[in-house]
């Protein structure tokens, strides 16, 4: 069973010594992220496909939807599932079919951050109460693992949800019509708020003592392997915390949690700004493309279309 290679004692000690002097291997301050890159699919008909890179970490998220029946106990809600895939492409330590600790934590935190916090209004996915609704599915693939997968995955998921458009529907009596992208402009999802995950890692500031901790944001894989604990805070840009996750590791004081929340809020605002910026850019690029094809599109709409399945 492959496992991640642990850093050598030399590297472990060096990383700690350097952090105690406010130094990191990639020469950035302790509270900064690596360059974040967010791209959407260039195909104008594809919505909800995002590719996020934070340094060398790379995450792909794709949203898909289909029409199905809602859960009998939740007649007015659509269905939204998140599935994470950690394959050997991301890291040789991950195998297909074997659930890794990282994978369990990743899907659990994303579930809590995005689904349980009600970021997506699932009621808007309902078509006919108790009979038809949209099944929304988010597939997250970690393509390259160089630490801080959680923040990257959450960012990719939020970006994909905000970018995604579901097909438009119309209801006439008992009949439901689902229109294709070409027939009717697809509809954006209803999002109530935009939460982001921010992970803070902790390192002992003195050998063998856990009283005083150094907190570091956006750790690389090597740094992650040397940390003594971590804390993941999910919050939106208004500072509304929806989840605080701490899985083992060194104990931290209540007051430092507050400091972490404040630091995370800055980062959540940064994520939010970046996302809005990129979405606006993408929208503009898409409009330009559609503008060029505008004439063709109008001709197509006049033809008699086959009735879509719905």
């Amino acid at each position: 069973m492959p496992s991640e290679v642990t850093p050598s004692t030399n590297n472990h000690d060096f990383i700690l010594t350097a952090l105690r002097q406010n130094l990191r291997l990639d020469s950035r301050p302790l509270d900064t992220y690596r360059p974040i890159d967010l791209t959407f699919s260039s195909d104008p008909d594809t919505y909800g496909q995002t590719d996020v890179r934070i340094g060398k970490t790379r995450v792909l998220c794709n949203i898909s939807c289909e029409v199905g029946a809602p859960y009998p106990d939740r007649k007015f809600d659509g269905v939204f599932t998140i599935s994470c895939e950690l394959g050997p492409m991301g890291s040789p330590a991950w195998e297909v079919g074997r659930q890794d600790q990282t994978e369990i934590i990743l899907s659990r935190i994303l579930e809590k951050t995005v689904r349980r916090s009600g970021a997506l209004d699932t009621e808007s996915l309902c078509i006919v109460a108790g009979q038809k609704c949209f099944h929304l599915r988010a597939d997250i693939h970690i393509l390259d693992h160089d630490g801080n997968v959680l923040d990257a995955a959450c960012f990719a998921l939020m970006a994909a949800l905000l970018h995604f458009r579901r097909p438009d529907v119309s209801i006439e009596g008992e009949e439901v019509t689902v229109y294709s992208v070409r027939e009717r402009e697809p509809v954006k999802l209803t999002m109530t708020h935009h939460p982001f995950c921010i992970t803070t890692s902790f390192y002992p500031s003195r050998q063998g003592s856990d009283d005083d901790l150094i907190s570091v944001l956006d750790t690389t894989l090597q740094e992650e392997q040397c940390r003594t604990g971590s804390l993941t805070i999910s919050l939106n840009r208004h500072g509304e915390v929806c989840n605080i996750a701490k899985y083992g590791g060194v104990g931290i004081e209540g007051l430092s949690v507050l400091t972490c929340v404040n630091a995370s809020l800055e980062k959540a605002k940064m994520f939010d700004r970046l996302l809005k910026e990129r979405l606006a850019e993408d929208e503009k690029a898409r409009q330009a493309k559609i503008g060029a094809m505008g004439l063709e599109l109008s001709a197509e709409n006049e033809r008699v279309m086959e009735r879509p399945v719905g």
Binding site: N10, F14, A18, Q21, L23, R24, L25, S27
Partner: peptide, 16 residues
């Protein structure tokens, strides 16, 4: 590549 110098900063810079 293994690098050791008197200060952590120098090591990081050369390695980088």
């Amino acid at each position: 590549v293994w690098i050791d110098s008197s200060t952590a900063r120098e090591t990081i810079v050369i390695g980088g």
